[in-house]
Amino acid sequence: MKKLFKPAIHILCLIPLFILISDWLNDELTANPIQYLTLSTGKTALRLLTLSISITPIIFLTAKRDLNPARKLLGLYAAFYAALHFSIFVGLDYFFDWELIYETILEKPYVLVGFAAFSILSVMAVTSTKGWKRRLKKKWKPLHRFIYLAGILVTLHYIWLVKSDIREPLLYGAIIALFLLLRIPGIKNVITKFKNRTDSAKAAEA
């Protein structure tokens, strides 16, 4: 079971890519393929980012330490899809038309916010190795807490992007905000105390 955990996550994270490739081979990338590719890679990046963020609080709540490797893998795949998303925007959608890209960034804050989130994810992906962890020592953890900022920026990027109905991006935002809340020391302590009390109550019953 434990042996299968990592391969299972790899497969899970690659499914969206396989779907896109199969859509491409079957000529099913819609009438507007570039927009479709942009949207699906972006959504996948946000979903994986949210899942990655969820691992720490889930471990905290359930004490299932075995889940730990999932956090890094999910985060790396989120960065991978974000890189695809960014490359499609620059290379396919705007075809390296830097003047138009520059105008778009100035005109539309959502692009800027998305780019900021992508930069954070890139730095985190590069520094995710053991070597960087050793080199950065105590700075590594605070650096990697920027994932919450990335999550919030991506949510904002998505909210500014949808036509009017912002319920879907708000859902991701709410999940990320909830996990962020769980990491605030005061709230964390309250939950720990509550958990200890129910645990000792259970122990007393037994």
């Binding site: 009438a31 507007n32 570039i34 927009q35 396919l92 959608d93 705007y94 075809f95 038309d97 138009l100 105008e103 778009t104 005109e107 539309k108 804050p109 959502y110 500014w160 992007l161 036509k163």
Partner: peptide
């Protein structure tokens, strides 16, 4: 705020 109104993609074409 969202879409470029300076350029567009004609459905079926690659470049804007």
């Amino acid at each position: 705020p969202r879409w470029s109104q300076k350029s567009e993609r004609r459905i079926g074409e690659f470049r804007r």
